Amino acid sequence: MMEAIFNSVFPIIIERDKKPEQIASGVLLEIKNHLFLLTSAHVFDDIQKFPLLIPTNSGFTKTNFSAACLPNTDENRVGDKIDLAYIKLNFDLKKNFSQGISPLTLNNVDTTDYKEKDDIYTFSGFPYRKTKYKENTIQSELYSFTGGLAPKETYDNLNYSPNTNILIDFNRKKTINILGDISTAPMPHGISGGGIFSYSKDISRLVTGNNIYRLVGIGHSYHEAQKILAGTSINLYLEIIYRNNPTLINNLDEIQGWTPLFNCVTYYKKDEWEIIKNTLEDADKLHSTWEEWRIATENYIEHLNSEKIQCRRMIFNINSFKEYCEKNKLPLIGRSRISYSSDLFAKEILEKKITFIVEN
């Protein structure tokens, strides 16, 4: 059964020669009764040339919109590694969407997902080669392509940044379908602008069917020769949305006696785990392995998200932590780690690196 979160993936349809044509994908996101369609900049380049059609209960509806798009600095955006655009739709459209279409809220978004080797991600969208046309109707099917995180060497070779991009391995001719058979997947052209969703880090959830998906990015490129799907992290989209729509942001300086539902969580990087274990004075209180610690931590974050408490992973650096403890004359133990992460968190708030959005 398709998870409800995938109902946010939206077929982008234009009117060309007075006929509807599905060209790409997008993701619907609702923030404080504002409706945004997140997609790729190269998709928006095409949208600007033709009327945008919205599938509603009464058929296709032409709509006006405002939008933001990164400038095109390279022909056909060949060198655009961010490829970011969003469309702000009339909120009233929401109640008229065709059945099965519904926007995400911020509770479904993970802005600080930390990518590690062997993590799994799903790219979801509407391949336009699978679209069927009959008169003025369109039948378009949602596809999901799932793969493991690409290695750092691939990021380097394709000139992508692990901080802003998500890349997964995708060998189209050797995919496993829902029946467990090896098959050739359809060309992913048309899923540009579709969602990138994270899986629970606890792989056992995949077996039990208790997986929790979060939106972590927007897909934009298929590198066929390298067998890679690429996209951009969701936090860059939110940063531009908030910058262009300042009324969405709560001004903490003007709020008296209000504490945001936001929690910081110390995050240990896998490649520092052994150094951390050998340095901390209470290392015996940590989990035996990094894998055990990460599953416990990510399950805790998912629990907080289910309570509508936003989380931010604060990356732990052992050298920085030691300097902090020396400066403040603190032992290298648990309560000092909490203090260290809390101070980092407070610093980001003061430097306006964190934006608080409280949903109605």
Score class of each variant (00 low, 15 high):
M2I: 02
E3A: 04
A4L: 04
I5S: 07
I5F: 07
S8K: 08
S8W: 07
S8V: 03
I12Q: 04
D17M: 01
I23P: 00
I31T: 13
I31R: 12
H34I: 00
L35R: 05
F36H: 02
L37F: 00
L37Y: 01
L38R: 12
L38P: 08
T39Y: 04
S40D: 12
S40C: 13
A41V: 01
I47A: 02
K49A: 05
F50Q: 15
L52Y: 08
T56D: 04
T56W: 12
K62I: 15
N64K: 10
L70F: 00
L70S: 05
P71E: 14
N72M: 09
E75V: 07
E75W: 08
V78E: 07
G79D: 12
L89A: 10
F91P: 13
L93M: 07
K94I: 14
K95T: 08
S98Y: 11
G100H: 10
S102Q: 06
D110M: 06
T112Y: 02
K115C: 14
E116I: 09
K117Q: 14
D119Q: 07
Y121L: 04
S124I: 04
G125Q: 11
F126M: 03
K130P: 01
Y133A: 09
K134Q: 06
N136T: 12
N136S: 08
E141L: 10
G147I: 08
E153R: 08
Y155H: 01
D156I: 01
N157D: 14
N159Q: 14
N163W: 15
D169V: 14
N171W: 03
K174G: 00
I176G: 05
I182A: 00
S183P: 00
T184F: 00
G190H: 06
I191D: 12
G195F: 04
G195W: 09
I196Q: 11
Y199S: 08
K201E: 14
D202Y: 01
D202M: 07
N210E: 09
I212Q: 08
Y213I: 00
G217A: 07
H223P: 02
E224M: 02
A225E: 11
Q226W: 05
L229V: 01
A230S: 05
G231I: 09
T232F: 00
I234Q: 12
L236M: 08
Y237W: 11
R243P: 10
L248K: 11
Q256L: 09
T259G: 13
P260H: 02
F262S: 15
F262A: 15
C264W: 08
T266P: 10
K270Y: 07
I276W: 05
K277R: 15
K277Y: 11
E281D: 13
D282E: 12
A283E: 07
K285Y: 03
H287G: 02
S288R: 13
T289M: 00
E292S: 13
I295C: 03
A296R: 04
A296C: 02
T297R: 07
Y300A: 10
Y300T: 15
Y300M: 13
L304D: 12
I309D: 15
Q310Y: 15
C311P: 08
R312A: 09
M314K: 06
I315G: 05
N317L: 00
S320V: 03
F321D: 04
K327H: 03
K329Y: 12
L332C: 14
R335H: 10
I338V: 13
S342V: 06
K347I: 07
E348S: 07
E348T: 04
I357Y: 11
